[in-house]
Design a protein around this nucleic acid. Sequence first.
DNA 1: TCATTAATTGCCC
DNA 2: GGGCAATTAATGA
Length: 229
Amino acid sequence: MLDVALISHLPNFADFSRSELEEFIGHSRARRVEKNGHYFEEGETADHFFLLLDGYIRVVRISPAGEQIIVRYIACNELFGIAQAIGRDTYPANAVAAVDCVALAWPMSLWGETVRKFPSFCCAANKTLGSRLMDVQERVIELATEQVEYRVAAALLKLLDQAGKEVEEGILIDIPLTRQDVSELSGTTLHSVSRLLSGWEQNGLVKSSRKRVIVTNREKLHALTAGDK
DNA sequence: TCATTAATTGCCC
DNA sequence: GGGCAATTAATGA
């Protein structure tokens, strides 16, 4: 079984006693999903909720025309698949492992009592939902009003916050990320992303290679989202 | 080494 | 900016 210390520091569990947390974890099962596998698919009965312990998850929806849209990425220590919290009994999107992932899975039947009994857990779930909602609102506004350059820069900056990892040349987005992925995340095409990244590379903002993006000048990238240009 | 998957670039709308 | 095609590059079996 899993070491309680792995997650006891999370705000979700602030008002669990040690034994309560042990019991709660006892009701979960660690679920491993290898890269490109999925935790659940859109429309499936939501029988579990999850806490990501390691890895990154891509939340994907398919448009009526069959095109993929990446809704967001989920980083570790985040709750996901919490359909019950928004009154659904099916999952609203696909959850795909962007890398090999480990998550704890609880039966959804535990959701109600957990939320009722532990304000810290409830509060963390609300915060998670709230910040996702804010994210979505921001993106709607971006899509309606901003240029592609802005949107791609904003998408990269968001990933930097979620998955940034310091390396010698700058900050690496620690998720395998194709141009296609970036385009699905920012509502454009892989061609435009490729052209933008090439341009930015020449100007020293980023360094990219196959499935990897390193941001070498965060300030300049940020400036692209500041309204000018 | 070959087959597959990604990335780049030029041309046209 | 997007769509398409040709080309090249990287990767993994």
